[in-house]
Write a protein that binds this DNA or RNA. Structure first.
Lengths: 244, 244
DNA sequence: CAGCATAGGACGTCCTACGTCCGACTTTCC
DNA sequence: GGAAAGTCGGACGTAGGACGTCCTATGCTG
């Protein structure tokens, strides 16, 4: 069904219309994540565009996490993810670091607002199993810190499990993205946080936070989280000062 | 055994490497938002790839909000924006609505957490000018409601200005995206919110919120916001019930 | 000096051709 | 007969050329 598109649209709008047509096709056909999509040839015929144009639109959807492409096999509706946000924020964060670092601070602020603001609600829904997992992670952290090893994964898992009780996929993804972006930025400023003293301090602050969560002291947990982020802000400030 | 240097990467990794090369080029050259980038021909020569491959990578960066393309003129580093997140979330939200609506609820939850959690901080930094703007918007809303007109823009502006005092671009963008996505979802469920009674109710709730902000009553403002989102959740629930 | 007309550069779209990868089918060999 | 190896076709990946469209800048004209 060769649809005749209004020929007079600027290029950006046209590409946008094309991606929109493809997502509409997914929605109209009721395709679910994991389902196969039409091939390039079928889409070309159906949408009335050339292969290059179509592929550019598809690549956009791939970058946005809408579709997943398997070379030599086909195209599929992707599982939920926030690759797009992650990639976008990572670039912005790195860019700002080389100039003002303002955006990196904003990211930390938003993380703090979300985590400190929601830890209370999360604690209301937390289960014994979550607490057990958190404690296990804290113990691992303390051990790794004592051995002088860093524990990036443990840190990430601690925060992930802390908010898992809320059962909000979007929130979990957002926090995960913020954590990853911060991590990337942090690596690029090459902060000296691998000293044994700093490791022990980080492990200890997680221990304190865990105890607060376990005892159900929501205000304390919230303020401990806020304090944790203040420390991060301090590191960023130090870096910016060292650049000037 | 594991090869130390995989001579070939899969297609996805190659595209990712290419986009990464381009962003690195931006960062290395210290390009700022608005600055001109090399032309397609120059990038082709510099990165050693064909035009199609390059253009696909560029379209990805455009969708991610990294670069901005002006037909017939050139390519430029884009201003900060969260188009990527917006597009991605809009699709996910629409998709979920046609099935369970779970993700739409999650979006409202995150909005509520951010707005209700941060309104207090924002109020601490609010100025007389912000208050004047807010009041002006509320007056407009009340007038529009009395005339039976909807006031989507006014609603959006109210929330935007409410959090402007925090001076956090990322937060403002996030809230804006959430608002837009919710708006898109809302339109697609065709809720009957344009009745005069509903309009008056919405205008009134904004009036109440404004008064709370003006008087500096942070707990009241926070709970009014929470209440506002409870209403939205109710609409989503009604829609899902009507589908079953 | 202002306005229009033209020329050039740069992106947009389409086409053809070939390379690469994957899954499925067929063949071959125990 | 069954399993391993080889083969085939489909689908995506990459390259390059050709032409269209759009924007800016230049220079001409009144």
């Amino acid at each position: 069904m060769t649809v005749s598109r209004p020929p007079r649209l600027d290029a950006h709008a046209r590409l946008r219309a094309l991606t929109s047509d493809i997502t509409d096709l997914i929605l109209d056909r009721g395709l679910l994540p994991g389902d196969a999509m039409p091939t390039e040839q079928e889409l070309m015929a159906e949408l009335g565009v050339g292969r290059n144009t179509l592929r550019e639109a598809i690549k956009v959807l791939q970058a946005l996490g809408v579709v997943e492409i398997r070379h030599g096999f086909g195209m599929f509706v992707a599982e939920e993810n926030l690759v797009a946000l992650s990639d976008s924020l990572t670039f912005r964060g790195q860019m700002s670091l080389r100039h003002k670092g303002h955006e990196a601070n904003e990211l930390v602020d938003v993380r703090q607002a979300l985590e400190a603001g929601l830890v209370g609600t999360a604690m209301s829904a937390i289960t014994e199993q979550h607490l057990a997992e958190l404690e296990s992670i804290v113990v691992d952290m303390e051990q790794l810190a004592a051995d002088g090893h860093s524990f990036v994964d443990a840190d990430r898992n601690f925060h992930r499990i802390l908010f898992e009780p809320l059962n909000n996929q979007l929130l979990s993804n957002l926090l995960g993205v913020f954590w990853d972006v911060y991590r990337t930025i942090h690596q690029s400023i090459d902060a000296k946080d691998s000293t044994r003293a700093h490791l022990a301090e980080t492990a200890h602050s997680h221990r304190e936070l865990f105890e607060a969560v376990k005892s159900g002291d929501k205000p304390l947990a919230s303020s401990l989280l806020a304090c944790h982020f203040d420390g991060i802000r301090g590191q960023l400030a130090d870096f910016n000062a060292s650049v000037d």
